[in-house]
Design a protein around this nucleic acid. Structure first.
Lengths: 258, 258
DNA sequence: GTCAATTTTTGACTCCGCGTCAAAAAAGTC
DNA sequence: GACTTTTTTGACGCGGAGTCAAAAATTGAC
């Protein structure tokens, strides 16, 4: 049994190793460049061995996306627990989005690939479910802040939408802006010089527009964001570091030291 | 010279024909499925002939995207000319976005592909410029409505952002929601049942939040949108039809009739 | 420590698509 | 009709996907 688990451990270990090698290829050179042969040769295994872990490269992409989304979820969880009124907690999640995109850019980019239908459709239902579930968790985290705000009477949302649809708006504006920022051929040349700040202004306007208490001026909003940063940053870095330790376990052949 | 132009016409004609065949493959089965061999055999030409028109499939994708974005621009142009206060004109552009996504879904999906870096980087600078330019036009159309609103004193935008950055917020929320709607693995199951309406509520809140006159209730907003629909729809259909005539020109060997 | 059974790894193989290019076919010219 | 130019063709070389039988390694019974 210990033997069994050792084997399993080794297997899992190598699975992680494959992902570790695959990630920068996918992010830096795209799906095309991510070939099983290349992974194999780069890791000094034969192609067949890689196929023992993943039935095709699409599955590798989804596996990478699961890691990425779990990191996002962990950041959201932490952000939602910040001290303060519900509105500040929502803003903290917004801050987490910014952080994720800017400090975990590779993961942000990996996440994009699941929107590719070819990749999505080809991969296993099991991993699809992991992703759906993770997306569900993220929604859950945010919408429970909204629900609490409603309970507290910090916020009244329009009848026309549900709390989740309320969240969807913020999801869309953040997500949209980040995708555009990372891939729009001409944002700068079109006159959008500071997309992050622009989106903050829009989020502020939305929150005020919905009258989510406490109402804020731009100055207040920015200074609140400026407090959120330091409050979360160190935890965020810990979360990232833990995740990376989990993922990178490449040198520790788990007893040998020295 | 007539000969020359006839040749050119035929060439161009076939280029369009290739795109016509390629579009449904790209949209329905993805980039992988779009192969030069397949195009060739489907059109009953040899592979080399296709290569005379496009140096690789990436270029085909960009060519399709140019067509798509030109349609979008035409819709925006028409929408921006609607009769009414500046705010209604912006809402009309929002309506155009909805229309484009829902009624020109293939073009909407084609547009997405240019965000793929592999495809973007591989294609010719010339076509990249066409796309950048078209994106610039769209931004231009929207931001000139904003600028006019400012001039008219219908709107005062925050100092922190430029008119383009103001537009960027709306771009992001629309774009983001549409991408999520088309590709999020779990929108419905996560509780977002009516994404279009949700985004309308957010846009209303944004416009009111910025105090873009005339301020509206949800009822007024919806009834305004309900008027915009019929006002534009027939022109929109004309625009689409013209575009398709332009693009489909597959049966008219331009003098032979009967 | 040996050996047969089991598990894992390997890489040769087939298939398919990309992109090239010399040769064949067609169109144009006089 | 003969010669030139343009266009089309498809065989070819390359490289990656995914398979699978054979080789290697591991296991555990004795």
């Amino acid at each position: 049994m210990t033997q069994m688990t050792r084997k399993q451990r080794e297997m899992e270990q190598r699975t992680r190793e494959i992902l570790r090698v695959a990630r920068p290829i996918l992010v830096g050179e795209g799906f095309q460049a991510l070939s099983m042969e290349r992974l194999a040769s780069q890791m000094e295994y034969a192609k067949g061995t890689i196929y023992n872990h993943f039935p095709h490269k699409e599955e590798i992409v989804l596996a990478l996306a699961v890691e990425a989304m779990e990191l996002r979820r962990a950041l959201f969880e932490r952000a939602a627990r910040i001290d303060g009124p519900t509105r500040v907690r929502l803003m903290a999640i917004g801050y987490a989005c910014e952080f994720f995109t800017q400090s975990c850019t590779d993961d942000f980019l990996v996440e994009q690939w699941i929107r590719n239908n070819n990749i999505w459709d080809k991969s296993s239902e099991q991993r699809q479910n992991l992703i759906r579930q993770c997306e569900g968790c993220c929604m859950q985290i945010v919408s429970s802040v909204v629900r609490q705000a409603i309970e507290n009477r910090d916020l009244v949302i329009p009848e026309a939408i549900s709390p989740q649809e309320f969240v969807f708006g913020f999801w869309a504006i953040n997500y949209g802006s980040q995708i555009l920022t990372h891939s729009s051929p001409s944002l700068m040349s079109v006159g959008v010089l500071n997309p992050v700040q622009a989106i903050r202004v829009h989020c502020l306007t939305l929150l005020n527009g919905f009258q989510w208490a406490p109402m804020m001026s731009w100055q207040e909003y920015e200074s609140t964001m400026a407090q959120i940063g330091p409050a979360l940053e160190s935890d965020f870095h810990t979360i990232c570091a833990d995740r990376n330790k989990m993922i990178d376990r490449n040198s520790d052949r788990n007893m040998v030291s020295q």
